[in-house]
Computed example of a mutant assay.
Amino acid sequence: MKNRALLLLLLPPLFWAGNALLARATAGDLPPVALAFWRWILALVLILPFTGRDLWAHRRVLWAHWRAVLGLALTSVAAYNTLLYLAVQTTTAINATLVGTSLPIMVLLLARLWLGDPIRPRQAMGMVVSIIGLLAVVTRGEPARLATLTLTPGDGLMLLASASWAAYSVMLRRFPIPVKGFTLLTALIIVGWVMIVPFYLFELSLGYTVQVRPMTLGVIAYTAVCASLLAYYFWNVGVAALGAPTAGLFANLIPLFTAVLGVALLGETFAWFHSVGGLLIFAGIGLATLPRR
């Protein structure tokens, strides 16, 4: 079960790397809130025929846990991706990735405060090794690049996005809801989408509209299927099996996968620092997930 969960946790960072890459690539054609709005509508249309009956059958269970449902929907569906899309409008990939390194630390601390999970030495060491690998990737093997970074409003939004996802990851364990994974996801999509609606209407009032093109439609489809339904389900399975602190370390794979996708899709060069950084990230995850004697 643990090995299966570890393998499944490799997929969300891969899907979210593509999510961030495509959001940056279509920033002028897909307004940030509109992308969040339409991706969740499409995700709901795709999943509801398979989960609608079970969702109705468990309506009383979900209502009994309405506070948890609201919190989970707010921090995941409504806040995280919307803040991410807003962040990449005004910040660079390097800045966003560096700010994202706070996610595993936030998860570890929240799990300690809310769940009483101990911070094991190997867990802390694994986090440090993983972050060093992450820095090797985003600085392209040149630590001096860190001194030239400038903060933007997008960096603050990315920090809020990381805090939101950390809270969601810990709440999954803190407030378990006894329904199937995809059924819970359907409920979160419905509630979270309703939360997004006012912000989407406000964005429309400012004159921002979606440019309907094959590229934008493809991005919405990708974010709905891969970055929404599949990624969320696999992440939830991983958190349930391994705990939020361990799952949080896998977020450090996002910049590595972004670099790999850049090589595959944009023709960028795969350099030595990608290999070194990737090895360190995986080594840190392996150290943190090593079974205790």
Rank of each mutant, 00 (worst) to 15 (best):
L98T: 03
L72H: 07
L62I: 15
L48K: 01
L110K: 00
T152F: 07
T82A: 11
F282R: 01
F270T: 04
I220E: 02
V138M: 12
F273E: 10
A167M: 11
W114Y: 08
L206W: 07
T91N: 14
I189K: 08
P143G: 09
W56Y: 12
D117N: 07
L8H: 09
S162G: 04
L172A: 09
F202I: 15
P143W: 06
A271Y: 06
T152C: 02
R4G: 10
Q89K: 09
F175M: 13
L135V: 15
L108W: 03
Y232R: 00
V107S: 06
L10F: 06
A17C: 12
Q89P: 14
N95V: 04
R39A: 09
F50S: 08
M195G: 10
F270E: 04
A96R: 10
V219I: 06
R53Y: 06
L86C: 08
T258E: 06
I119M: 11
Y168V: 08
L256T: 03
A36T: 07
F250C: 01
R120F: 14
G278I: 12
T152R: 02
V219H: 02
G267F: 07
P214N: 00
W114V: 10
N95M: 08
G126E: 06
W272E: 14
E203V: 05
I132T: 14
I41F: 13
